[in-house]
């Protein structure tokens, strides 16, 4: 079980969170009309083996979206910040 250091709530069990996928993709501006930009945001992923920036949502806690830095092999978490404080 992963234990995620939520900046608001402290170290909490994975079961309080829901996963939000790759946090390295940037949502295009609302005015963006190029489908390719949207495809990159919605569908295509780096899927690295190793360091991964990813969203977690503290649904059963502070309800903040977090950007967690985690290794996809060792599962070690090396960073966790509020998504709103990470420039996408």
């Amino acid at each position: 079980m992963l234990r995620i250091p939520c900046p608001i709530c402290g170290l909490r069990d994975e079961t309080e969170f829901s996963y939000g996928g790759d946090a390295s993709v940037k949502r295009p501006a609302m005015a963006e009309t190029d489908p390719k930009a949207w495809m990159d945001y919605v569908f295509y992923r780096g899927n690295p083996r190793g360091r991964h920036l990813e969203y977690w949502h503290h649904v059963q806690g502070c309800r903040q979206w977090l950007v967690v830095e985690r290794d996809t092999v060792s599962h070690v978490i090396s960073g966790c910040r509020l998504a709103r404080e990470v420039s996408p």
Binding site: Y19, H52, V73, S74, H75
Partner: peptide
Amino acid sequence: DGYNSYAQRGGLP
């Protein structure tokens, strides 16, 4: 388990 992983080992939940 619901998160990106290549680890081939799962968690307790």
